[in-house]
Amino acid sequence: MTKKAIAIFDIDGVVRDVGGSYRRALADTVEYFTNNAYRPTSLEIDQLKSEGIWNNDWEASQELIYRYFAAQGKSREQLQLDYNTIVAFFQSRYRGPDPENWTGYICDEPLLLQPSYLEQLTQAGIAWGFFSGATSGSANYVLQKRLGLQSPVLIAMEDAPGKPDPTGLFAAVTKLEKGLEESVVIYVGDTVADMYTVTKAREIQPHRTWIGVGILPPHVQETAQRRDAYAQSLIDAGAAVVLSNVEQLNPEQIQSLFQG
């Protein structure tokens, strides 16, 4: 008997390229709140995220600001950064200054998959949905407005604790399984935190098969050295396989993961 599969996708770095949007807004934010003294490089942002607990880019921005000033000899208590002010600045770059009519970096994100790919999964009997640390507004912007999906299963930032807590992954699975309790769950993500989420899910629900699939985001594929190092970090964090684009995870590849 062929096992049923549920594929849950992260969004940033998997469905859309956020190298020029979220990551750019993060760098802008750190630069602004360090008085233009420090702008983190793409590699420095990756190094922070490789710690596995900075999936939220607002929190990552704040942490890099703190670390910059700590290197200057200032304590966190001295700084008294206001988190909401940081979030507001970040959003003004990412969404744009008008919260109703978005004109920011989000408008220019390249898509990394097409609706036809998801239709291919549906035809193969593979249920699919999304679990992302993005806000529901940002996630639905790409899923509904850009990809044209009708009411996709989505667990976003407002719906569950941040990764690597697997609560949101469980919630997405519950919405999709519809009696498929024996199904294999594949979580597809581009960060160490995503792979840790799968590991924690396995610890909490060992009766089910959980498979982590790593995707290389476009910004790490510019050189072979960086690509290979990033791929290794995902494997070390628990990825069963690492792919350069999400559409490589076709029904045949999914079936081979079951049998691996």
Rank of each mutant, 00 (worst) to 15 (best):
P115L: 09
Y117I: 08
Y117N: 09
E119M: 07
Q120I: 04
L121M: 13
L121I: 07
Q123W: 06
G125P: 10
A127C: 12
W128P: 07
G129W: 05
G129K: 05
F130R: 08
F131C: 15
S132T: 15
S132Q: 05
S132A: 10
G133Y: 13
A134V: 03
T135K: 10
A139G: 12
A139E: 10
A139S: 15
N140A: 06
L143S: 11
Q144M: 12
G148C: 08
G148D: 08
L149A: 11
Q150K: 09
S151D: 15
A156R: 00
M157G: 00
M157R: 09
E158M: 05
A160M: 04
A160N: 04
P161R: 02
P161Y: 02
P161C: 05
P161Q: 02
K163N: 01
K163M: 04
P164K: 01
D165A: 12
T167Y: 07
G168A: 03
F170C: 06
V173F: 05
V173I: 12
L176Q: 10
K178Q: 14
G179P: 07
L180Q: 11
E182K: 12
S183R: 01
S183W: 01
S183F: 01
V188A: 02
V188C: 02
D190N: 07
V192R: 06
V192H: 06
V192L: 04
A193G: 05
A193W: 05
A193V: 04
D194M: 03
D194N: 09
T197K: 03
T199Q: 13
K200W: 06
A201V: 04
A201F: 04
R202F: 09
R202C: 11
I204F: 06
Q205T: 13
Q205I: 14
Q205A: 15
P206E: 14
H207F: 13
R208F: 05
R208P: 04
R208M: 02
G212R: 01
G212P: 01
I215W: 07
L216V: 02
Q221P: 08
Q221S: 14
A224N: 09
R226M: 13
R227Q: 14
D228E: 15
A229C: 09
Y230E: 09
A231D: 02
A231W: 00
L234N: 01
A237W: 01
A237S: 12
A237Q: 03
A239L: 01
A240Q: 07
A240P: 00
